[in-house]
């Protein structure tokens, strides 16, 4: 089997020293804690495909189609290896051999889809198109970066992503409920954080004893573009006193998800006004990767404001 696109990455894959420094930055690894879900693990798969030590299989394809393209692995790599570029070429080669993994790419439910095209317009990766003959939305699995912006944008819930990484619509809903149920003390603030690497607290370990810090109010969404207005309202409906959306600085989002979040925040703000709820209970803030301290400070100040407003 000739992996035409992957071939050119052979020497780059040698440069990866397999130190694993990319691992802590990967939301997929955080969700599963399996080595195969680390950027290092997926690079190894690509390497194995090239050397023939790993045969292409539906499982291998599934793993290589799993990536949210947050790019944190590439940014953290001081050997300057760019895993996401390598995964993209591996996907294209695998597709050519008939291995189309679902991974983190989006799915379109033809029964629900009205082919309105809103998803196509929001996709910065140009992964979506409407086939005018069949009036179906087509997903380009190589281009789809799994940001979930289209999932949140679809008015009829026709777009979806596989569960298991904590960021599908169902999982986010469950996370909101769980977070509010287990939150200690007050004020009850739900924070949607677009990138877990800037959240404070533990990354790959657990604290399970009395007095342990409860950071459960922070829900990691990987991209703020996947937070739809319904999810924000659900949080208020379930008892949140305030909701903060922490997203990337405006021009730094790979998917323009922060622009979508800004629009949706404005919309929910107006709805809250109509419902007689102070719109300042919803706040959108921008943080660059690594600005954990800034996030911590912003959270503290927001919690203070919300505490003075009290519960809804």
């Amino acid at each position: 089997m000739e992996f035409k696109r992957l071939e050119k990455w052979g020497s780059e894959l040698n440069l990866c020293i397999r130190c694993g420094y990319c691992c802590e930055h990967c939301p997929l690894y955080r969700a599963s804690n399996w080595e195969i879900d680390t950027p290092r693990g997926r690079l190894l798969l690509a390497y194995g495909l090239l050397t023939g030590e790993v045969d292409p299989s539906p499982y291998v394809a599934e793993k290589l189609f799993e990536c949210f393209y947050c790019g944190n692995c590439s940014k953290s790599c001081s050997a300057k290896v760019t895993p996401t570029d390598i995964f993209t070429d591996a996907r294209a080669d695998l597709l050519e051999f008939g291995f189309a993994g679902q991974g983190t790419t989006v799915r379109n439910d033809e029964k629900l889809c009205m082919a309105c095209g809103r998803c196509v317009l929001t996709c910065k990766s140009e992964a979506l198109s409407v086939d005018m003959g069949s009036m179906r939305v087509l997903v380009d699995k190589v281009k789809c970066k799994g940001c979930g912006v289209c999932v949140a944008e679809c008015p009829v819930g026709a777009m979806s992503q596989k569960t298991g990484f904590g960021v599908s619509r169902e999982e986010l809903s469950a996370a909101v409920e769980n977070s509010l149920r287990t939150m200690n003390g007050s004020p009850k603030v739900v924070v949607f954080c677009c990138n877990w690497s800037m959240t404070p607290g533990l990354q790959l370990s657990r604290m399970e004893f009395k007095g342990a810090e409860n950071a459960s109010g922070i829900i990691v969404t990987v991209c703020s573009g996947r937070i739809d207005p319904g999810l924000i309202l659900e949080a208020f409906d379930q008892g949140a006193w305030g909701v903060m959306i922490a997203c990337c600085p405006l021009d730094e989002c790979e998917h323009d998800g922060n622009y979508r979040a800004k629009e949706r925040c404005a919309l929910v703000g107006r709805l809250l006004d109509v419902l007689g709820v102070q719109s300042e209970r919803l706040k959108l803030e921008h943080f660059a990767t690594g600005e954990a301290q800034k996030l911590k400070n912003a959270l503290k100040s927001f919690a203070g404001e919300i505490a003075s407003l009290g519960p809804i």
């Binding site: 397999r18 080595e35 190894l44 790993v54 499982y59």
Partner: peptide, 25 residues
Amino acid sequence: VRDDIADLYVYGSDASVHEANPSVV
């Protein structure tokens, strides 16, 4: 428990120059 060859392959290395697959993880 994992014993797919893909998993075994990624568990077969560390940051050294060596490589050898386990039988199961």
